[in-house]
Amino acid sequence: MIETYLRQSALDHLGLAGHSTAAPTEAGVQLSEKPLPVAVNLRGDSGDAAFVEAVREALGLALPTLPNTATTGEGLALLWLGPDEWLAMQHDAAAFAEAQLATKLRKALDGLHAAVTEMGESLCCLSLAGAQARAVLAKGCPLDLHPRAFGGSGHCAQSLLAKAAVTLLQVSDAPAFELYVRRSFADYLWRWLEDAAREYGVAVVRP
């Protein structure tokens, strides 16, 4: 029987815990991996009141219908990805929480034309914070992340960062961002971020 402690995050091979610091540092940028996120992709018709209500019921969160925004509740964030697509995100959850969350949604949406797909295993979550976080992202991401343009905390977007597709969620106006990237690209993107942040000073911190 395999124990859940044998799960490996996308960046497990880098041994980040071994060279990270605890507290925020003076460095312009703080980087970390938030390992093993829970994520469920949700498809459905936001024009269908039954769908919207069923999601609210199941998650206790309103479905964000404004483009590039996320709604957040206790330990759960719901990201707008497109006109009929959302991503429910959760951190620090148990090994099989993803299946449970998906099951809950499937049950709630039974009978509606909707799709629920587990995605967390395919994602790596990187956290990027600090005074120069925006400057680092700008080196590879064509989005305008200025507060006037992006909207600050609670805003999200799918775009490109360097040569990887990412979903970006601003989690603090400090600023701090979460980057969701497909697992196989995580090693590349981590190394890219460390390199891009070099001129500002970069600290690997514990998530």
């Binding site: 490996q8 497990d12 091979h13 080196k139 360097a162 040569k163 990887a164 697992r183 196989s184 690209f185 090693d187 590349y188 993107l189 190394r191 890219w192 390199d195 891009a196």
Partner: peptide
């Protein structure tokens, strides 16, 4: 730019790569 050496192109790794 920084698209050189081991950042020239993403190297996609499977979970069993190591």
């Amino acid at each position: 730019g920084r698209d050189v050496d081991n950042l020239l192109d993403p190297v996609r790794r499977t979970p069993m790569h190591a």
